[in-house]
């Protein structure tokens, strides 16, 4: 597994277990309640998680980093930028892979605007995580957040193309 993920996971468990120990020491009843709530949330999160995992796998299988590089490499017109934004929104690539990919796109002749559009929608817009976002925060929240993030990502990309 990637070092980044291991580190984040370790941090979460150090925090959670430390907090749990403290909680148990302070109030056993409350701690029991907290564990019960944790169990319930886990059950609630499971279906959404499975859906996200299924979608992520499919999309990564169908749209590999090589495919993205192939389509965006030399392309630098407005349609390339738009395509980059769509690719970014659709895929969920860990940053360990996405930044080297973005760097290789630049080398292959893609414009700053295109690369910025790709990176920004990649991190801000989540098509594959939408089922989980909808379950947790509702349809309106999800559509608004992702829609606005997509629009702003394109604005950010255009500004970056002008000033860099």
């Amino acid at each position: 597994m990637k070092g980044e993920v291991v580190l984040a996971t370790a941090a979460i468990y150090v925090l959670a277990l430390g907090f749990l120990g403290y909680s148990f020491f302070k109030d056993k009843e409350k701690t029991k309640k907290a564990i019960k709530i944790a169990g319930k949330s886990m059950v609630r999160l499971l279906p959404g998680m499975l859906m996200v995992v299924g979608l992520v796998g499919l999309i990564l299988g169908l749209i590999s980093p090589e495919t993205i590089g192939h389509y965006l490499g030399a392309e630098s017109g407005p349609s390339g930028t738009f395509l980059a934004a769509i690719f970014g929104a659709l895929t969920l690539i860990p940053s360990m892979l996405s930044f080297p990919l973005a760097a290789s796109l630049l080398e292959a002749g893609a414009s700053i605007t295109t690369v910025a559009a790709f990176i920004t929608t990649l991190v801000m817009v989540g098509f594959v995580t939408a089922p989980m976002e909808i379950r947790e925060l509702g349809k309106e929240f999800t559509i608004l957040r992702n829609g606005l993030a997509f629009i702003f990502a394109i604005i950010i990309a255009l500004i970056m193309g002008v000033i860099l």
């Binding site: 597994m1 996971t9 959670a16 749990l20 907290a34 709530i37 796998g57």
Partner: peptide, 26 residues
Amino acid sequence: QALTAAGGYLKEMILVIPGITLLMGL
């Protein structure tokens, strides 16, 4: 390729979720 990618993410989720839900409960 899809199955391998999904498997990787599933592993990551299974690892992270208990810790996060525990924090949420607390």
